[in-house]
Simulated assay, not measured.
Amino acid sequence: MSEKTEQTLPALAPMPGDWRRALAVVAHPDDLEYGCAAAIAHWTDGGREVAYLLATRGEAGIDTLDPVACAPVREAEQRASAAVVGVESVEFLDHRDGVIEYGLGLRRDIAAAIRRHRPELVIGFNHRDTWSPEPGGPWNTPDHVAVGRATLDAVGDAGNRWIFPELTEQGLEPWNGVRWVAVAGSTSPTHAVSAEPGMERGIESLLCHRAYIEALTDREPEEYVREFLTGFAARTGERFGGVPAVSFELYPR
């Protein structure tokens, strides 16, 4: 990114604070912990309720571990990770890791969860093709794109009784109470929340994914995690008054 581009990036606005319930929807265990967990720790400390919904159990994420053996390991790591930041509800949809398909089934599953949890804020994950706003940036994974896009669409589906009427028949009444969708890891962030109050628990939360991290890097896990999370928060903070922060792209409803 050029110096000129950095200088013209707009400041990030504070995230809305007038909500009580959130549902975070991602593809894999560890997606929320790579940066967003510090914000979630801060929110749950303030008495807000956050639930997690994962499309897969991350069973294809460790090359040296067969998916049948990997799934329970990664599920256990995710539940422990969520507990560190005050999240009690962790649900898995059992779509296949690595080959999630955007479509009606995925939209229906997410819409059903939104109707069950009835959140005011839905937290999603980067649904764009790359991890950078610059041309030639690192390519995103198909799972992230599919789940991220389906999450945006499912918010509307959850509020319309004539889309997926079988959900109403199952006792899941429409929910039109989502006020915002906040996309973590976005290449075009608009808002942020301070990472400082929840940073240490964010680090501990990501460290719960030890089997995954040890397969991902040869570095000492705590050194790797701390450097990654604090460095990312510091860079985000350059657009948030110098305060280390977690950024989101906010879609008002």
Rank of each mutant, 00 (worst) to 15 (best):
E3I: 04
E3L: 00
K4A: 15
K4S: 09
T5E: 11
Q7S: 12
L12N: 11
L12M: 14
P14S: 12
P14G: 09
A22S: 13
D30F: 09
D30N: 11
G35T: 06
C36Q: 15
C36H: 08
A38K: 08
H42W: 08
D45E: 15
G47Y: 08
R48W: 05
E49I: 09
V50Y: 00
Y52D: 09
V68I: 14
C70D: 13
R74S: 10
R74I: 12
V85F: 03
D109H: 10
A112R: 01
P119L: 06
E120D: 11
F125M: 13
R128I: 07
S132Y: 03
P133Q: 09
E134V: 02
P138H: 03
P138W: 06
W139Y: 06
W139I: 09
N140F: 04
N140M: 00
D143L: 05
G148V: 04
T151E: 12
T151V: 15
T151Y: 02
L152N: 12
V155Y: 00
I163L: 14
T168L: 12
L172H: 15
R179V: 01
A182T: 07
A195N: 02
E196T: 10
G198T: 01
M199H: 04
R210N: 13
R210D: 12
E214A: 14
D218F: 08
E220F: 01
R226V: 08
G231T: 12
F232G: 11
F232Q: 09
A234T: 15
G242D: 14
E249P: 12
Y251V: 10
R253K: 05
